[in-house]
Nucleic acid binder design. Structure first.
Length: 106
DNA sequence: TAGATGACTCACA
DNA sequence: ATGTGAGCCATCT
């Protein structure tokens, strides 16, 4: 029967799945991921989950940016420089550590 | 167990 | 247009 813990774990899994589902050359916002995970208001939780896991090998968390298209301000992966580099590798143009959501947002 | 934290977002002044 | 405040959800201590 539905345990609360299982539900939370599922949310986390969904978040990762959503992040992994971001096509190459595109980016998504925390709100978008949260929406896909089933909780449109869990943008904050999404960031925490990615931070706790930071599974950059299986989950391209570098394709996740905030609503302003700006990269993580806090310590992530190894610095926004790393994230910007990875995004550029995907063909996304970065300007002042920001991406054009009108162009690259899913 | 409850309280505080944070890779966010929106609304208002 | 810029700055501040409150809301929301999962994780950590």
């Amino acid at each position: 029967m539905g345990k609360q813990k299982a539900d939370e774990a599922k949310f986390k899994e969904k978040v990762f799945e959503a992040v992994r589902s971001i096509p190459r050359g595109k980016v998504a916002t925390y709100s978008d991921i949260a929406k896909k995970a089933g909780s449109p208001a869990a943008a904050r939780a999404v960031g925490n989950i990615l931070h706790t896991n930071c599974d950059k090998l299986g989950t391209p968390c570098y394709r996740v940016v905030n609503s302003m298209g700006k990269l993580s301000q806090n310590y992530a992966f190894g610095g926004v420089e790393e994230q910007a580099w990875l995004l550029e590798c995907d063909g996304i143009e970065i300007s002042d550590f920001k991406v054009d959501l009108t162009k690259y947002r899913i």
